Simulated scan of single mutants.
Amino acid sequence: MKKLLVSIVPLALAAMIGIAPAVAAEEEGATPHYPINHLKEVDWSFAGPFGTYDKGQLQRGLKVYTEVCAACHSMDLVAFRTLDDLGYSEDQVKSFAANYEVEDGPNGDGEMFTRTAVPSDYFPSPFPNTEAAAYANNGAAPPDFSLLAKARYVERGFPQFIFDIFTGYSESGPNYIYSLLTGYQEPPEGVEVPEGAHYNPYFIAGPSLAMAPPISDEQVTYDDGAPETVDQYSKDVAAFMMWAAEPHMEDRKHTGFMVIIFLAIFSSLMFLTKRSVFASKEH
């Protein structure tokens, strides 16, 4: 019993201070928790109640997605017309959409056909169906990028996750994407990685994943002079994916701020009214 308590107490303390993943991985015979490493935290421009998107970064992220990620990952819920939020003109959006072919129909003969995309269309999938996507990627279909930045939420542990509830912390998804893209490394001694898989201690579902490191330095050419490194590419595409998942975040924050101001003024007026009404009353 004493030995059991000795082994349980350190794990409980580790869980409280947020280092349980690393401790559990090191405990022999313990059930591992993923991700193994804590996420890298980035100073995002959209963080906090007054954060806003950096349109230059979003444009670079779109470039990384179209030149690298789009070969495997779909973005079915994002329409070309929404790219005007990134600072593009209507003509630029039309020109961008024209680079894609989409399936349409049926026509008068009852057959489906392909045509040049227009701004009202959505980003087409690189594969005709999920089975084809899985077959082309070692049996694992690449996830859709539309909502991935919101879906891949990793709690930061105690006590951070308590504060996150009240601060509206929403950077976990982008932090995860950035950490994953920059976290590929050789497996440590004693860790076996299946053939065709790649070790990454930031992966949320295990120690390795089927996706090989997708990007390398100088793979994408930037027009604004930003560093052409894996680190910068990862930040830019993670920010772009956050925008894709929540394009109206800035409006939401603005509306929330106005609501707080209204409630503060309303509460003050109600308090003053109450004092005025009951000022002459005996208590």
Rank of each mutant, 00 (worst) to 15 (best):
K3I: 09
V6F: 10
P10L: 00
A14S: 15
P21K: 08
A24N: 12
E27F: 11
E27I: 15
I36H: 14
N37W: 05
H38V: 04
S45E: 06
S45M: 02
P49V: 05
Y53T: 06
Y53I: 08
L62G: 09
K63A: 13
V64N: 00
V64M: 00
T66R: 15
E67I: 01
E67K: 12
V68S: 02
C72D: 07
S74W: 02
M75T: 08
D76Y: 08
V78K: 06
A79N: 09
F80R: 00
R81A: 13
D85G: 03
G87P: 09
Y88D: 03
S95I: 00
A97H: 01
Y100S: 03
D104K: 11
D104E: 11
G105P: 05
P106S: 03
G108H: 06
D109W: 10
G110S: 06
G110I: 05
E111Q: 15
F113S: 08
T114F: 15
R115L: 03
R115F: 04
V118I: 12
S120K: 11
P126A: 07
P126W: 05
F127A: 03
E131M: 10
A132S: 14
A132T: 14
A134S: 11
Y135L: 11
N137D: 02
N138H: 12
A141H: 08
K150A: 09
R152W: 04
E155N: 13
G157T: 08
F161G: 00
F163S: 12
F166K: 02
G168F: 07
I177H: 08
Y178H: 15
Y184E: 04
Y184K: 03
E186M: 10
P187Q: 07
E189Y: 12
V193N: 00
H198E: 07
G206D: 04
S208I: 06
S208G: 09
S216D: 10
V220H: 05
T221R: 13
D223L: 14
D223H: 10
A226P: 04
E228D: 08
Q232W: 06
Y233M: 14
S234E: 10
A239L: 13
D251S: 15
F257I: 07
F262I: 07
A264P: 01
F266M: 12
F266P: 02
L269F: 10
M270C: 14
T273G: 14
R275Y: 01
S280W: 10
